[in-house]
Design a protein around this nucleic acid. Structure first.
Lengths: 354, 354
DNA sequence: CTGAAAGCGCTTACAG
DNA sequence: CTGAAAGCGCTTACAG
């Protein structure tokens, strides 16, 4: 069995201690980032660790009473692809840090107070994807109970209260929407429609803001008739597009705040017999599976979801177990990761005759 | 911190031993299902375990040299919703059994021989979702190297060679496709089109077979002109539907072997101005996110993917660490889980005038 | 069929 | 700033 092989050759704390000429205790201190180790000692120990490729045994660590966190990942929809990728990154980092991942579904009977009850009993810190962490009540409980939390909504419109035990991760929603809009403008589009996302989703306002900024800076007018409220569903995107396409001049491009709605726009366009993307360019947001399921494939903004998952676990670790030697370092409350503009077949320059 | 609370109150092997009036060793044997324990002793120990709600400490178990498996979940597409749900179940069961989950992506340079190299070094058993485990070469390597493996494709057409170290999980593809077809027939459809899935996907043939069986049993003819080969993409579904819809009599219902293709059928139908589902009923397979993203929502077959993930880990555990007392019990090589027919807005009785 | 001993790899106090 | 001791909860041999 492979695990036996691994067992026999695995090297331990004591091996490192011998190699570095110190006691196992000192190696333990270096590993756990305690401040009370002489700089020269620390360096030589770290060198031995690297040389021997030492990897701490998580089981032993827990057993001996090390701090092990139970990290909750709260989700609403089990079949969302977002959850899968988030889990992918979270599982990886939780394994590396030796933490336990507790994946919990927020059912119909879920309320913010549930978190207060579960905290400490079921888990020690929580990751809240949108829209889980966007609700005011949830945030109030997080603050009141001082619950270590990471929100993965990304940059949002209204600056949030900064809590020492909370962290925000994700992409810069405004910058991403702006980048995409600028690309549409560069393609030659002037009449550009916009479909907003759900109001309870914290990124919604900022995406719209990014759209407006790009239009303004290009000297283009944001036509109120070409701005519709959607709810992130295909149907809402389709209906919004149907309305917009009756106006004259017709928009030559529509930017929807997520991919599902953008797919709905494509549906509306094809139903009206438009040539896609010649008559109508369509762009979405998220790069979810539907973006490459429908035809033409969607131009959209890709979020590094799996990385968001791993960073979320990493930050939560930092909140739950503050490192002494990092006390003075980065008191950051957020981290914006890189997004990518993905250009696919759903966008092009507008047809001349349109 | 919650973990500290948990620590102080957690009860151990010794607690159980005291309560049952035996040595810790005996309790350990009962937990690990060793055969050499007197029946009466076993029963009283199990009673104490239940009474005290004892849960073995996984860390300690590993540390002391218990058998811990590294279970690989091989995937191709990180943003598939299938992966997310599979992970959900796998993480849960791996945590419960104390195994380590190693999630690996099969990149472009992946080949069956990669498995032979990784086995033993990186992991001790593997879960192979479709189409990962459908390739003959992959199966040959699994057999040659005697790699503990679980295939999650579900029931497939050609009976596979039964390996002592392999297991098949999933739904009965034929029965599920048959059930769905029967429902379409019950709605009054006679001219029913079928779009096949990718040929390298092992469930493809059996789903088609289920369709044919239902038609035959209802005394309906499977019109060869209404059977198209697809490749599981939206585009292939759309193109197949476009061809079918030119025939006379036009099909009043189309059953696609997955949801993406079914969505493409809806796209083709709406482009042609058909009333959906009155003029054309559409059904898919999988109940993936797109099923409830598009409009109308798709009638489809729901697979218990998360359960498949947890059962896969459970079976792999049984293969890697055969329980002595289960030697005579279930020598099963497969397990078919329950599927669900989900009726949504994309199907109805056909319009009279069609 | 059952148990006493030793030890897995690490950490917590407790010293100095 | 560093170390010697004890122990976490379990399992592996080894006895009987």
């Amino acid at each position: 069995m492979g695990s036996d092989r691994a067992r026999s050759k695995s090297i331990t704390l004591s091996d490192v201690a011998k190699d570095a000429g110190v006691s196992p205790m000192t190696v333990s201190r270096v590993i756990n980032g305690e401040a009370s180790v002489r700089e020269s000692t620390r360096i030589s120990v770290q060198e031995s660790i690297r040389k021997l490729k030492y990897r701490p045994n998580i089981g032993a660590r827990r057993l001996a009473g090390a701090k092990v966190a139970r990290i909750c990942l709260l989700y609403g929809n089990p079949s969302s692809s977002y959850l899968g990728e988030l889990l992918l990154g979270a599982v990886e980092m939780a394994g590396r840090l030796g933490h336990q991942l507790v994946v919990i579904r927020a059912g119909k009977d879920f309320s913010a107070e549930t978190l207060a009850q579960q905290y400490g009993a079921l888990w020690d810190g929580i990751i809240l994807p949108s829209p889980m962490g966007d609700e005011a009540e949830t945030r109030a409980v997080i603050e009141r109970e001082k619950i270590p939390a990471v929100f993965t909504t990304g940059r949002v419109s209204s600056p949030r209260k900064k809590l020492a035990h909370a962290f925000e991760i994700g992409i810069d929603n405004r910058a991403a929407a702006k980048t995409l809009t600028q690309r549409l403008i560069a393609l030659g589009h002037v009449h550009i429609g916009y479909i907003k996302g759900r109001k309870d989703h914290a990124g919604t306002a900022l995406r719209y803001q990014g759209f407006c900024e790009a239009m303004d800076e290009a000297g283009l007018e944001v036509n109120p008739l070409l701005v519709e409220q959607g709810d992130f569903t295909y149907l809402s995107g389709m209906q919004a597009a149907e309305r917009m396409l009756t106006f004259d001049p017709r928009p030559t491009a529509i930017f929807a705040a997520n991919d599902d709605m953008a797919a709905g726009v494509l549906g509306a366009g094809s139903r009206q017999g438009l040539i896609l993307p010649g008559d109508l360019s369509v762009a979405g947001f998220d790069d979810s599976p539907i973006a490459t399921s429908i035809w033409p494939h969607l131009t959209t903004v890709h979020q590094p979801v799996s990385e968001i998952g791993s960073v979320a676990v990493e930050r939560l670790d930092g909140i739950i177990f503050p490192k002494e030697d990092a006390a003075n370092a980065s008191p950051a409350h957020h981290q914006w990761l890189d997004y990518t503009l993905v250009e696919r077949a759903s966008t092009s320059s507008p047809n001349r005759h349109s």
